[in-house]
Simulated assay, not measured.
Amino acid sequence: MSVVHIDRVHDCSHALDQLLQERDDLIAVLDRVVALQATAQLIRVTVGVDSGFVADLERPGRAVVRCMAGTRTDQMQNLVVPVGQGIGGRAMALGRAVRVNDYLTSSMITHQFDAQVRCEGIKSMIAVPVISRGQTVAIAYAAMRNVTQFGDCAVNRMREIADHAAAAIRVAAAAEDAKTDAVCAERNRMQNALHDTVGALLFSIGAQVRSLSDVVTDNPELDLRISQLRSDISAASSALRESLLALNNTDPDRALAVELAEHTRSFEARTGVPARFVQLDRVPPMDSERTGLLVAVAREGLLNIEKHARPLSVVVSLGMCDGGVQLVVADDGSGQVVAGPGTCVGVRSLVDRAARLGGRVSLVRDDDGGHTLRAWLP
């Protein structure tokens, strides 16, 4: 084998190793538990401590230690840390880093967890809240088994790690939301398919059986078989209804996003124009009138784009804005969608509906081409 060939093989092998590492890194930030476990490992290596661990917030004011690195026992595993208790609970309450030189003798903290700390042989500790968008989402800990004084450098490193962990948690949450939306959308597709095929078929069979029973007279044996058919159809219809109800069991918080994503995907399938739905924020549940209006805005906007805009791409976005919920349908088309005073009848109707709810709908032509249909509801 030539030297050139060997070098090329080595280069390819190095490139493959890099790709595999990038894949592992991507998986790490798409899974919350994996991201927090990586954070515990990073604390140990970066800060240079005996052990690192992370408590995930189970609910506001209550964290649970889930991920550990460098521990000797399982005493910390699944340890529940309420706000204000121990060093982690104090960091949660204050919203900032807390450090102690000797955990068991410190007067700065409460001592509900002394038994676990003593079993693990921990002396000095730092606890730093992991804050994402103004909310504490986890607690990061660094620990030493000898009495030492953590300096500002160690605290700053912990803060940097906490910032990276917060970003990883946001990415993991977005990935989980996308997966949940995809599952909800698939359930909706299955529900519609069952309703339109199996439901229609059962209705047709039932109608034919009823027609047959009207024709058949003075035939006890056939009457019995028809009665059995009716019973079987009724049982099948009942089972179908239960299946449809189960498939329709969608989280109300996600139902709007799922429906908007479905309309966007349907537009792309019909037109071949790249279209995507982006949920910028989680929106609170709304009543059926407000939800129906936002869906109607998306549908009207996509229909107008399909008819008139000749776009290269379309984006539908949903998020919070000015204390309300905002939906935007934007395209980069060169066609002429009617905007302003001459707005089409469909959009004018949406404007009136939004006004009755204290909201607003507008359709404008953008300075750089394309159009933006925007709806806002309080």
Results as ranks from 00 to 15, higher is better:
247 L>A: 08
190 M>F: 07
280 L>R: 14
17 D>T: 12
94 L>A: 14
365 R>M: 07
64 V>W: 01
311 P>V: 11
328 V>W: 00
7 D>C: 09
278 V>E: 13
24 D>V: 10
290 R>M: 11
55 A>P: 02
140 A>G: 11
140 A>D: 02
128 V>H: 00
197 T>V: 11
152 D>H: 10
323 G>I: 09
253 D>M: 08
136 T>F: 00
287 D>M: 04
309 A>H: 04
369 G>R: 03
43 I>Q: 03
64 V>S: 05
354 A>K: 02
212 L>A: 15
7 D>L: 14
347 V>H: 04
95 G>D: 03
160 E>Q: 12
103 Y>D: 03
305 I>F: 08
26 L>Q: 11
280 L>M: 08
324 G>Y: 05
255 A>C: 07
92 M>C: 04
345 V>L: 07
69 A>T: 06
303 L>H: 13
36 L>V: 06
48 G>F: 04
68 M>I: 12
219 N>W: 08
317 S>L: 01
98 V>W: 01
146 N>R: 15
230 R>G: 09
331 D>L: 04
71 T>M: 10
184 C>G: 03
187 R>K: 14
151 G>W: 04
141 Y>N: 05
371 H>A: 04
130 V>N: 00
192 N>D: 11
341 P>E: 07
275 A>I: 10
176 E>M: 06
110 T>S: 15
32 R>L: 04
77 Q>T: 12
83 V>C: 12
352 D>P: 00
49 V>A: 07
314 V>T: 11
223 D>C: 06
195 H>V: 06
243 S>M: 12
211 S>Q: 14
166 A>N: 02
39 T>S: 13
231 S>D: 11
360 R>I: 04
7 D>Q: 13
347 V>T: 15
21 Q>R: 14
14 H>Q: 12
376 W>I: 08
320 M>F: 03
348 R>C: 11
271 T>P: 04
256 L>F: 08
188 N>P: 00
156 N>R: 15
53 F>S: 01
46 T>N: 06
120 E>S: 05
148 T>R: 09
376 W>R: 06
89 G>Y: 00
81 V>H: 01
327 L>V: 11
365 R>T: 15
236 A>Q: 05
277 F>P: 06
80 V>D: 10
244 L>S: 06
347 V>P: 00
341 P>F: 03
95 G>V: 07
255 A>S: 14
186 E>L: 14
220 P>Y: 10
223 D>T: 12
313 S>T: 14
203 F>M: 08
193 A>T: 12
230 R>N: 13
55 A>N: 05
138 A>D: 03
80 V>Q: 07
173 A>I: 00
347 V>Y: 02
333 G>V: 08
343 T>A: 13
239 A>L: 09
14 H>W: 06
159 R>N: 15
96 R>Q: 13
205 I>G: 01
119 C>Q: 11
357 L>Y: 06
306 E>I: 05
157 R>C: 09
278 V>D: 13
168 A>W: 02
221 E>I: 06
117 V>K: 01
139 I>E: 03
41 Q>G: 15
161 I>N: 00
333 G>T: 08
242 E>C: 13
349 S>N: 14
58 E>T: 10
53 F>H: 11
143 A>L: 02
227 S>P: 01
180 T>V: 11
255 A>E: 12
